[in-house]
Amino acid sequence: MLLRVTDLKTHFFTTRGVVRGVDGVSFTLEKGEVLGLAGESGCGKSTLGYSLIRLVPPPGRIVGGEIELDGLNLTSMNENTFRREVRWKRISMIFQGAMNALNPVYSIGYQMMEPFKYHTDASEDEAKERIARHLELVGLDPEIVSRYPHELSGGMKQRVMIAMALLLEPDLVIADEPTTALDVIVQAQIINLLKKLKKELGLSLIFITHDLSILAEISDKIAVMYAGKIVELGDSEIIYENPKHPYTQKLLAAIPRVHERVDKLEFIPGAPPNLANPPPGCRFHPRCPYAIKICMEKEPGKEVLDDGRVIYCHNIPR
């Protein structure tokens, strides 16, 4: 097992109260596995990603739980060791909207050199060689090191970000909405690329998006989040073919499919809760058509079904 996350809690201490961005999340990930993380905007997907690489923006903080990488306890590790040994080297992240974060005044090559300066003692020649190799890996011509961000298309910039996340050859990459801003053709190219890296390098990946169709294309396992918690987690075939949690069911029914004609799309009336003051009991109960009395009073506990999936629901629809 590569990664084990147990009851992780990351909260934001704002002047208007405590926002429970991630509120008791547990899962595991094997080497070479892709975990897809889905859920509506604001449910805590990015916060979970930031927690794993320990870059939660203030006023946020990990307040509970454990993260273990290859048996190494990351939550208790001091920041110096984490920076030297783990961040970028063993776990890296492609940030949401990152391609727009490329600095317009520096060349691509200059920006790709940065990680080497802080995290390795590689010589400049070694670094250059490695940059060239990784650019080729993501299907870019190594000569683009001399170009500036505005001279690249969106898909090319996104590939540069992927190459940067891979530079120090980490075990785990967290990709936060890496294809959301791109059109379908570029999107498919990037997904193909990530599949290839998984196959060839045995890369483990946490792929974050609210687009469940994209997750189906790449994930071995799916975790569906709602209001700071995972509500259902299992093999992606099982979840897609037979979703059990009412929230997962609604989410899947809301996807229009290009090769079928559907007459009416389902949607979930109401809005996700305010995470500074989530509803008691099951957080989904105000929007759930299956809610019964206990759903309003008691938080559902973890249940493992015969097919191996984990689900949190008092009244699993049959």
Binding site: V184, A188, L212, S213, S236, E237, E241, R257, V258
Partner: peptide, 17 residues
């Protein structure tokens, strides 16, 4: 061809575009 479809059976296949 490029549109993603919610079909996890295809997750190992590298699409030819």
């Amino acid at each position: 061809e490029a549109v993603p479809e919610p079909e996890p059976e295809r997750k190992e296949i590298i699409k030819s575009l």
